[in-house]
């Protein structure tokens, strides 16, 4: 089975890496320039709203990462190609970190906006639960010593989690409409001005490049790890 994990894959990753790192840095330079200096401050929230340019992309990619995690788990079930199990594992850790970033930035943003560090807002709460779904996946993988078995089991858990995300989201939203105090304003204003759209777009691109870069680095480590494991087992 491990024959499908060739040096070719590692070579591609190693060649792509410097290019990715440079483009991430360039994109972030542009993105930060536009979002911190070029764009106007929000007329209600002032400069504090600029944290949105980090918060929103990381929240998007946190969700996207779970989709990739579930998708590659499904593909793993269909093809049994170990590369999908490795992709799932690498993206899980990154997704967890992005979830954490969006939680922390959301909380920092909340302080000047709401006056408190944390509000039991539907979106924040769902993100918090998403964080624990990631955590469960990673812990489960680590706690099973037989790694062949671990990848099968955690793939199943990833799919179960993915099925559950809409249910959790639905129930948390519903709960929030029941309990939400009327004074809290929504996080994002209904329409974003075009002058904010441009930096948001560039920052999204930069975050995406950052995600891909880190993902490739993790992927390489996991592939090498996997190889070491196989060699040890055979010996």
């Amino acid at each position: 089975m491990n024959l499908r994990l060739t040096n070719k894959q590692i070579n591609i990753i190693e060649k792509a890496n410097p290019f990715l790192i440079v483009s991430t840095i360039v994109a972030f330079t542009f993105g930060l320039y536009f979002s911190l200096l070029q764009s106007p401050p929000d007329y209600i929230q002032g400069d504090s709203m600029r944290i949105m340019y980090i918060h929103v992309p990381s929240a998007w990619f946190a969700l996207m990462a779970y989709t990739i995690l579930a998708g590659s788990s499904v593909l793993w079930f269909i093809t049994r190609n170990p590369i999908f199990s490795i992709i799932a594992r690498s993206i899980a850790q990154i997704g967890m970190i992005f979830t954490l970033i969006s939680l922390v930035t959301g909380s920092i943003w909340g302080k000047p906006t709401w006056g408190v560090w944390w509000v039991w807002d539907a979106r924040l709460t769902s993100m918090l639960l998403l964080f624990f779904l990631y955590l469960a996946y990673i812990f489960l993988w680590q706690s099973i010593t037989n790694k062949d078995l671990a990848s099968k089991i955690s793939a199943a858990l990833a799919i179960v989690g993915f099925v559950n995300i809409p249910i959790i989201k639905f129930s948390v939203d519903w709960w929030n409409t029941l309990h939400q105090p009327a004074t809290i304003s929504k996080l994002s204003s209904p329409s974003i001005d075009i002058s904010m759209m441009v930096p948001l777009f560039i920052m999204t691109l930069a975050t995406f490049l950052f995600l891909i870069t880190v993902f490739f680095i993790r992927l390489r480590i996991e592939i090498l790890d996997n190889k070491i494991l196989r060699i040890r087992e055979v010996k």
Partner: peptide
């Protein structure tokens, strides 16, 4: 079944699923 025997791991998996 094959995971190291700790109820905390299982709680971390189960509780988010209990929330709804």
């Amino acid at each position: 079944l094959g995971a190291k025997r700790t109820i905390f791991l299982k709680a971390i998996i189960v509780i988010p699923l209990f929330i709804p």
